[in-house]
Design a protein around this nucleic acid. Sequence first.
DNA 1: CTCCGGTCGA
DNA 2: TCGACCGGAG
Length: 390
Amino acid sequence: MTGLPRYSGHSRCSMDAKKASMSTWKMVRFDNVSVYDSDVNLPIPAKEFASRLLKWYRENRRELPWRKDSDPYRVWVSEIMLQQTQVKTVIPYFQEFLKTYPSIKALADAQENEILSAWSGLGYYKRGRNLHKAARIVCEQHGGEFPRDLSQALQLPGIGPYTAGAILSLAYGEPVPILDGNISRLFSRYLKIEGVLEGSTLAQLQKFLVQLVSEASVSENIRDFNQALMEMGALVCTPRNPQCVSCPLAASCIAYQKGLEKTLPRPRTRRAVQEFHYTVAVISRGEKYLLTQNWKDTFLRGFWEFPRIQGPPTSRLEENFKLTHGLHLKVRKRAAPVAHRITFRKLNFHPVLVSLQSPAPQQTFTWTKPGQKGYPISSYIQKILKSIES
DNA sequence: CTCCGGTCGA
DNA sequence: TCGACCGGAG
């Protein structure tokens, strides 16, 4: 079953049936059964759709650091950071990152660990690693300039269909549509797409958008058009509690007309959450803490963390730290557990404040102030520290 | 607590 | 095509 609905008839419930019929395009085969082939009516003409959208954008767009210009490097960094991460979170990281790495060249010349510590707290650290790798490739193979060519852009690590489209359109003005979470959510409501937004449904939506860009004649205006759709998704057509009262497209939004704006899109299924417990040894020396690198787990690989053993605290934990880490320590105090979710894992960290009875093995440990350049950490480290302070 | 989301690799 | 990866918003 694919998600896109048959639209024959929808124009009847829109306000402008006559006009809407002028704006139709052929959808790809539905359910692989040709008898269901049908023309699709955008509820209003494509040009009207675009003009309402663009007017709203002119009046409501946020001034964001990466919207100051169309510099490909700035667009690139911002788009990578904005994957899975909200604007408000990204802003300070983006500002700092551009100060530290003002150009593709500067990024390519840096060490990966430094980049990861600039990324610390942002999550999805593979984005940072890939951005760094890609910067080196761009310097070596593309003369230091992000490729304008779609297939070349897609070759770069960390650049998928969305990000490639975003950079090509927003930085270079290539008239390609983009389809991110905001935009797919918006159209799932506007067109009332019932299926889960994945796979073939998204492929169909992508084709629909190509046609929309063409019919709406927004090729010259592609930067605003794409950003307007995303901005609408971020500010109006939000995941929860969409602000339909201030939506310039509500009058022709099919989900809104049917009262489905809160139930679409259908959520995708997720893996059940699994709980894990760890005891972590917090050992401080002034501002510095004893940290070690995580090589055991698949998550946060290579990141610095408090020495950690499996399971909640037991009476044998001193013995366990000796066996697991070669640390000779004495427990001073147990602190309240701190929970942290990473995908399907719920990690429960049980901090114990300890003192070191003999020096830590130098090979595997370091004394550092969390957040120190070159020592990437996850935000859960800060979470534990903050919890201990209080 | 639950839900959100681009890219990659199996 | 599915599941892993992260942290923050509601």
